[in-house]
Design a protein around this nucleic acid. Sequence first.
DNA 1: TAGTTTGTTCGGATCGTTCCGAACAAACTA
DNA 2: TAGTTTGTTCGGAACGATCCGAACAAACTA
Lengths: 175, 175
Amino acid sequence: MPSVEEFVESAGLYFERLGLSRTAGRVIGLLLVDPDDSADAPGLCERLGVAKSSMSVALGRLERSGLVERFRPPRGRRDRYRLTDDVFGRAFRAKMAEFAAFARLAEQGLAVVGDDATSRARLERMRDMYAFMGREFPGLLDRWDRENRTTGDGPASAGGVRDEFGEQGVPGVAR
Amino acid sequence: MPSVEEFVESAGLYFERLGLSRTAGRVIGLLLVDPDDSADAPGLCERLGVAKSSMSVALGRLERSGLVERFRPPRGRRDRYRLTDDVFGRAFRAKMAEFAAFARLAEQGLAVVGDDATSRARLERMRDMYAFMGREFPGLLDRWDRENRTTGDGPASAGGVRDEFGEQGVPGVAR
DNA sequence: TAGTTTGTTCGGATCGTTCCGAACAAACTA
DNA sequence: TAGTTTGTTCGGAACGATCCGAACAAACTA
């Protein structure tokens, strides 16, 4: 019989594999199942048993990566945090930057490798494959947006592919 | 002016972000640009300046993950290692397992979350999105195989999606 | 059988990351 | 202005992962 706590810990593990810290992953897990659509830092520290300094860096990273957004209610005295509307869309789109990065890595290889036919063919194949995925993956996302439009909010986050994901790009979200 | 060594180090960094060890990443980098289509462990240790014990575990992981295959020439006395034909296809396919995993995480969330409509909708959306990607991504790979068939070897590695990628699944290859 | 080569496993050292508590800065309150 | 609350930054501790050298096992050679 699973509990909310167990789910939060699972989420921590899952998102840690995506390159986030454990704490950041647990925050996302909590925001996913919490009835309130937002939480504040002291509350998160309390519920997750984490020092506020750690929470500060975790939330800072989550915000910079675009997974969580920070806001302050009109006359409020503390920030609140909620999941971005298109959290997972962003996660997937972050993958796309990876595709491009690996295509560039292949290019770098082509620039240094000699004229050996086999090596060149291998690197060209690598480059082309990642380029292909980088080209085609957005279409998949668009199709999902199209087929699952819930409200009239248009294609969720069609713009603003965030190239930075955390400070050094998220390793692999779609993974 | 880039050199082969610099490329190998870059590859080490890139593949490290995918969840491989630095050494394993450098091995892949070297195999990518090396004119010989295979290498042996002592040679890799020499060229990469790594202890043979480290090389042993790196190669073992690469082999178990399906990125590198080990073979022994007919009357040879030492193993040789080469990139799998479909290295990157495997990498991409490993991502698919991730999709399924995150869909399951969402299910776990739905099992513990109350009846709050917003939370449930968010988790259902997460589940559906990852499920969608898990369904559709293979088609993308197949299409690439179809459009880039170089020889008559059929769709490269159509079978055998490797669920384990390293011991604990590769974080994000396609990423 | 003795010796060599190849590869794996083990214990300890090293490295990078995360985390905590404390100090600090900024905004608000009384 | 003094005090409180919120959030960030800093130094050090703790943890995990990798790596190395050494011991070990297995296969082959002479």
